[in-house]
Design a protein around this nucleic acid. Structure first.
Length: 549
DNA sequence: CATCCTTTGAAGGCT
DNA sequence: AGCCTTCAAAGGATG
C-alpha cells in the first residue's frame, strides 16, 4: 500500500510499524502472530460471511474476498481484527481487499494496525484517528465506548462520551503516523480511494509510483481552516494544536529540513509553518541577515505573543495519559483530571516494561521530531508561558515542607466514588512512590528498562500517612535509586514538597536485579511480588497524598 | 476568568 | 552530579 508508506529513509517513522510495509518480513511476522488465533479468525470469518450474505446489497460478484461488514454492521475494527489481519496479509501478498463501503471504489487498502491494539483489544487513539481519516464511513468507536459489557457507561456520562473519538481529540502520536499524502475533502471521497490511484482503464487500483505521489498535504493556503472534519484532527484540543498550528495557510515548510515526505506532512500539518526551525534565530534579522529596525519593547512583546507557542513534546507518560484517559474516564465516575491522573499514574506503574517501553519509544520519536522541527527550541522558551508561577508562590507561602498548611483540596475527596474503577485508592497504591520510580531508565530505548518487578509491583504503596513511618521494604529514595532514576521522580513539584520526608519506598531487592532476570518475570519475583503486594494491600490505602498530620 | 490540582518525564538552570 | 523548577495534557474544582 504505497500511498500509506511513509517512504524510505524515514527514521522518524514511528508509524512505519503502523502503516508502512517497509519491513514486510516483520509485518508478516506480526500479522501471523495476530492471525495465529485461528479459532477466532474462523469465527470472525464465518460471522462475516454470514452477515455478508444477509446484508449483501452489492451486486459484486467478486466474492473472492470475504469482507467486513458495511458500516452499519461493522461494529468495530477491533471486532474484526483478525479479519483485517488476514485481509492485510492478502493485500501484502499482492491481492486487494474489496471494500463494500465505497461502491465507486471497490478496493480498499488495509492499513496494518496490528501493532496498535491496546491491551484491552481496542485500537489506540492514534490508530482510530488514522482509521477515521482513511475510512470515514467506518464506525470506529472510541476507546471510551469500547468498554466491554462489564463496565457499562454510567448514565450521566453517556452523553459525554463520544461515540467516535473526535478527530481533534487525537493521540499525540498521530503525527508520527505516516499519513499518506492524500487528505480528505468533505466533498470528495477519501483520496486513498480516489480515482487517482485507480487505473483509469480498468478501475483497478494500482500502485502509484512514488514519483506520482503528490506532495504531502498539498493543501492550498487557507485550506486548513476550510476542511472541517478530516483535518480537524490536526488540532488536538480546544483549537490548540499540538504544536501550534496556525490558521494561516501553509508556506513552504522548512526547506532547511531534509525531510522525507512523511516528515513534511507532519510539518505542514501539525507544526506551525511560520515558526522557523531555528526558532531562536535573531528575530530582528531578516532572512538575509540584515538587521531590521529595532523594535520597541511593545512591538517585540506583541510579536512574541503572536509567535506560536511551540509546546513541549509529550513525554511517555503524557502520551500514555492521552491514550488512556478516555478509557479511565469512561470506566470511572470520576471526571476530575487530578483524580484521573492519579489513576493513570498508578496504571502507568502497573504497566509491564514492554508496555511502557512502547511509550518511551514513541516519546523519544516525538522529541526527535520536535527537535528536528525546532532545532533551536528550548523548553526554557516556554517558561513563564503559564499564567502564574503557582508553585513559586506556594513555596513562598509554605515555609518548609509544611504540607499541613496545604490549603487545597485533597485527593481523599475522590475516594468513595470510584470503587468500581481502578482508583488510586483502590488497590496498590499511591503515586508517592513515583519519586523513586525508575521509569526514567527507559527514557532512552538503549537504557536499561526498569525491571519488571519495579513496574509491575505497586512499589511503595505507602500513602502519605503511612509513608511517614517507613515501610519495611523501603529505603530512602536516594540511597538505592536504580541507575538513573533521574531526577524525574523526585522532581515533580509535589514530590519536591515531600522530599524531606522520604516516603518512599522502593523495594530494595528487585531494583538491583539484572534485567535478564526480571523480564519476563520469573517465578521468583512473581512470588516476591505477590507477597509484597499482599503486604501492601493489607495496609490501609488512601488517596491522600498530602497529609495534614 | 484564572488558577489549582494531579500524574510522570524531560529539560534546563543552579549549586 | 545532583537538586530544583517548569511545563507538557486534562477538565473539574476553586477563589
Amino acid at each position: 500500500m504505497p500511498q500509506l508508506n511513509g517512504g524510505g529513509g524515514d527514521d522518524l517513522g514511528a508509524n512505519d510499524e503502523l502503516i508502512s510495509f517497509k519491513d514486510e518480513g516483520e509485518q508478516e511476522e506480526k500479522i501471523s502472530e495476530n492471525v495465529s488465533a485461528e479459532r477466532d479468525l474462523d469465527d470472525v470469518k464465518s460471522s462475516l460471511v454470514n452477515e455478508s450474505e444477509n446484508n449483501s446489497s452489492s451486486s459484486d460478484s467478486e466474492q473472492t474476498e470475504r469482507r467486513p461488514q458495511p458500516r452499519s454492521d461493522l461494529e468495530s475494527y477491533e471486532k474484526h481484527r483478525e479479519y483485517f489481519a488476514e485481509a492485510l496479509r492478502r493485500q501484502q501478498d499482492g491481492g486487494f481487499f474489496k471494500s463494500p463501503h465505497y461502491p465507486g471504489y471497490p478496493f480498499l487498502m488495509i492499513p496494518d494496525l496490528t501493532n496498535h491494539y491496546l491491551s484491552n483489544g481496542s485500537l489506540s487513539p492514534s490508530a482510530r484517528t488514522y482509521l477515521q481519516m482513511k475510512w470515514p464511513l467506518l464506525d470506529v468507536p472510541a476507546a471510551a465506548t469500547l468498554k466491554d459489557s462489564r463496565s457499562p457507561t454510567p448514565g450521566h456520562l453517556s452523553n459525554k462520551v463520544p461515540v467516535v473519538q473526535h478527530p481533534h481529540h487525537m493521540h499525540p502520536l498521530t503525527p508520527l503516523i505516516t499519513y499518506s499524502n492524500d487528505h480528505f475533502s468533505p466533498t470528495s471521497p477519501p483520496s486513498h480511494l480516489s480515482p487517482d490511484i485507480l487505473d483509469p482503464k480498468t478501475g483497478i487500483p494500482r500502485t502509484p509510483h512514488p514519483s506520482e505521489l503528490s506532495p504531502y498535504y498539498p493543501l492550498s493556503p487557507g485550506a486548513v481552516g476550510q476542511i472541517a472534519h478530516p483535518l480537524s484532527w490536526l488540532v488536538p484540543q480546544q483549537g490548540q494544536p499540538m504544536y501550534s498550528i496556525p490558521t494561516a495557510g501553509f508556506r513552504n515548510p522548512y526547506p532547511a529540513l531534509a525531510m522525507n515526505p512523511s516528515m513534511s506532512s507532519l510539518v505542514s500539518s501539525r507544526f506551525p509553518p511560520h515558526v522557523s526551525p531555528a526558532i531562536k534565530q535573531e528575530p530582528s534579522s531578516d532572512s538575509t541577515g540584515h538587521s531590521v529596525h529595532p523594535k520597541s519593547p511593545v512591538v517585540v512583546k506583541k510579536e512574541e505573543e503572536k509567535k506560536p507557542h511551540v509546546k513541549k513534546p509529550l513525554n511517555a507518560f503524557m502520551l500514555y495519559m492521552k491514550e488512556m484517559r478516555a478509557k479511565v474516564v469512561a470506566e470511572c465516575t470520576l471526571k476530575e483530571s487530578a483524580a484521573i491522573n492519579q489513576i493513570l499514574g498508578r496504571k502507568w506503574h502497573s504497566l509491564t516494561r514492554e508496555e511502557q517501553a512502547k511509550y518511551y519509544e514513541l516519546a523519544r520519536k516525538e522529541r526527535q521530531l520536535h527537535s528536528q522541527l525546532y532545532p533551536g527550541w528550548s523548553a526554557r522558551d516556554n517558561y513563564g508561558k503559564r499564567k502564574k508561577r503557582r508553585r513559586d508562590d506556594k513555596q513562598k507561602d509554605l515555609p518548609e515542607e509544611t504540607f499541613q498548611s496545604h490549603p487545597k483540596k485533597q485527593c481523599i475527596a475522590y475516594m468513595p466514588p470510584e470503587k468500581m474503577c481502578d482508583s488510586p485508592a483502590s488497590s496498590h497504591g499511591s503515586m508517592l512512590d513515583s519519586p523513586a520510580t525508575p521509569t526514567a531508565a527507559l527514557a532512552s530505548p538503549a537504557a536499561p528498562a526498569p525491571t519488571h518487578s519495579e513496574q509491575a509491583q505497586p512499589l511503595s504503596l505507602t500513602t502519605r500517612p503511612e509513608g511517614r513511618a517507613r515501610p519495611p521494604f523501603s529505603v530512602p529514595s536516594k540511597s538505592s535509586a536504580p541507575p538513573s532514576s533521574s531526577s524525574s521522580g523526585s522532581t515533580h513539584p509535589s514530590s519536591s514538597l515531600h522530599q524531606s520526608t522520604p516516603l518512599l519506598s522502593r523495594p530494595i531487592p528487585f531494583s538491583s536485579l539484572p534485567p535478564s532476570m526480571l523480564s519476563p518475570p520469573t517465578s521468583f519475583h512473581q512470588v516476591a511480588l505477590h507477597s509484597h503486594h499482599a503486604l501492601l494491600q493489607s495496609q490501609p490505602l488512601s488517596l491522600v497524598t498530602k497529609s495534614n498530620d
